[in-house]
């Protein structure tokens, strides 16, 4: 049981962005993927979510080869993601944004959408209540009908996590969730991520902010220039020579 990238290689023209990279996300485990800019983190992330396809290697979901599945199918199979820049309709309400997350598991048929049967209305009431609970749990806003655009960047990231949780994922992949987020919202985000892992969701965090990830993750992977240079306990990875060199340009400092 895992979401894994197996010996992935990708080159853009002559530039090898990923060289034979393998990573596995286990249920209930928070895996942190760190590396300086240009390390290939986002490309690896895109391979796992289906935005990019590997030129070599395979992506497996619980043993099934999903390398060529498009993004929308992976969501249906339980691989949810958030975006570096939150993507949502800023004019729609917070409730509407969270409700959107239920689509992949509760999509009505074309005919079912055009007629309003009592069973559908019941389902929608249930989902609405569930969305309101998520909004409360994530401490997004006191008013579910508030415009999403009125939230801070941190809350928008949190909103994306809530929306991803609404799709009942088996694996949750977060692309730089802590970038540009203040202390308070970052604490809320950490709480939400821990809770997801507690619910047996496998979490992959991609960040270049090492501090946030080292504190949060159970397992840490460091990438430099398209290769994995260190993997293991966060405590060990942040002290790894190559990681320190990549981040600090060769000068060792006491951690």
């Amino acid at each position: 049981m895992s979401l894994e990238a197996h010996n992935i290689s990708i080159a853009f023209g002559g530039l090898k962005v990923l060289k034979d990279v393998s990573v596995a996300v286990q249920p209930g485990v928070i895996t942190g993927l760190v590396g300086p800019n240009g390390a290939g983190k986002t490309t690896l992330f895109n391979c796992l979510t289906g935005v990019a396809q590997p030129q070599q290697g395979v992506v497996r979901l619980d043993g099934e080869d999903i390398s060529v599945y498009p993004l929308y199918r992976r969501i249906q199979l339980g691989v949810s993601r958030t975006f570096q820049t939150p993507r949502l309709d800023l004019d729609a309400s917070v409730l509407d944004a969270v409700m959107m997350g239920f689509y992949s598991r509760n999509k009505p048929s074309l005919f079912g959408a055009a007629v309003s049967l009592p069973s559908r209305r019941r389902l929608e009431r249930q989902l609405r209540a569930q969305a309101e609970r998520l909004i409360l749990q994530f401490e997004l806003t006191a008013d579910p009908y508030q415009r999403s655009g009125a939230l801070s960047l941190g809350r928008l990231r949190l909103l994306e996590v809530a929306r991803a949780i609404a799709s009942s994922p088996k694996y949750l992949l977060l692309d730089e969730p802590a970038a540009g987020v203040d202390e308070h919202d970052r604490a809320l985000l950490a709480k939400a991520i821990r809770r997801a892992a507690g619910d047996e969701i496998g979490v992959l965090l991609v960040e270049h902010n090492v501090g946030f990830i080292a504190e949060l993750s159970d397992h840490m992977v460091a990438m430099v220039r398209g290769e994995i240079v260190a993997a293991g306990k966060p405590h060990d990875v942040v002290r790894d020579e190559q990681v320190v060199t990549a981040y600090l340009g060769g000068h060792r400092v006491a951690a």
Binding site: Y72, S80, D89, Y103, A113, S116
Partner: peptide, 30 residues
Amino acid sequence: GYVNYMSSLRGRALNAIRTDHLLAQAMGVN
């Protein structure tokens, strides 16, 4: 039919498509 469609999850998916195709795909919309 229109209003039923728009008040269903499919209606939300359609609005997501209007906002951003990538967002819609990330919500599982074909």
